[in-house]
């Protein structure tokens, strides 16, 4: 039993150590801004299509599924509210984070993993740069900046998707009613929750991707393994954390 737990605990310890060094590194020179902007482009601009698509359809599906229930209670005018709350609180942050986990945590793990097995990380250290500063920190900063923006975009596109289904397809309610009920439903609390979540997810997504990349061993096969593990672990963290953060906000 103890033996069984040893490996995951050691992995987690390594992860915490890496996170500590990366977070401490944020406040220290050197800053490689070129790398930060490159990563922002890669994560932010690169994820736009998939984030817009998932955002749009999750809003549309929400309106579609809710239409029957709302008709039953004669509350179809409230469809904007339901779409807005579910999107801003949960679906927007979680789905965006899962997409970015699939695209970028895996990308980080495979990129850093290949660098590890071809001794590029060793070379970096040998030639005077700290891989935490040069590789991990830019990815952490870029993700933490870009993921909340992507989430806001997904929320908005989702509302548009819900609007098209509710008003143009099913004629549940009027346009003005949809938008005003959506707008009124969102409270400061929801916005805080909806922005805190992607920020926390971003930290976890980037650090998990980098962690599995940096500890890759065993040649190209190891890179594949690291990539898979990064996506799985990052995704699980996202759903666990959204529950924990949600729990905190519900009791508040």
């Amino acid at each position: 039993m103890l033996e069984l737990l040893k490996a995951p605990i050691l992995t987690f310890q390594e992860f915490v150590l890496l996170s500590g060094r990366a977070v401490r590194g944020i406040f220290r020179k050197p800053y490689y801004w070129d790398d930060v902007f490159l990563q922002m482009d890669l994560i932010g601009v690169g994820s736009l299509p998939v984030v817009i698509l998932t955002g749009f359809f999750s809003g549309a599906v929400m309106a579609l599924q809710m239409s029957r229930a709302l008709q039953k209670y004669g509350a179809t005018s409230q469809v904007g509210m339901i779409v807005a709350i579910t999107l801003v609180r949960e679906m927007g942050p979680v789905l965006t984070a899962l997409m970015v986990a699939g695209r970028n945590s895996s990308g980080m793990a495979s990129e850093l993993g290949s660098m590890k097995v071809t001794e590029q990380i060793d070379a970096m250290r040998a030639l005077g740069t700290d891989p935490i500063m040069k590789l991990v920190k830019p990815r952490l900063l870029a993700t933490a900046f870009v993921l909340p923006l992507l989430t806001v975009l997904a929320d908005f596109v989702g509302l548009v998707g819900g609007y098209l289904v509710a008003c143009k397809m099913l004629h549940l309610t009027t346009s003005s009613e949809y938008w005003s009920s959506a707008w009124q439903a969102i409270e400061y609390d929801d916005i805080a929750q909806g922005l805190l979540k992607p920020f926390v997810f971003a930290i976890v997504l980037s650090l998990v991707g980098c962690h599995y990349g940096m500890r890759t061993k065993g040649g190209t096969q190891g890179v594949g393994r690291a990539t898979t593990q990064a996506v799985v672990v990052a995704s699980v963290w996202v759903v666990v954390l959204t529950f924990i953060i949600g729990r905190v906000f519900v009791t508040m």
């Binding site: 660098m115 001794e119 590029q120 060793d122 070379a123 040998a126 005077g128």
Partner: peptide, 18 residues
Amino acid sequence: FDVRSRIGVLFQEGGLFD
């Protein structure tokens, strides 16, 4: 880092940045 400035190294796997 200071010590390594005085050492040159060629890695087995090359270690060139792709």
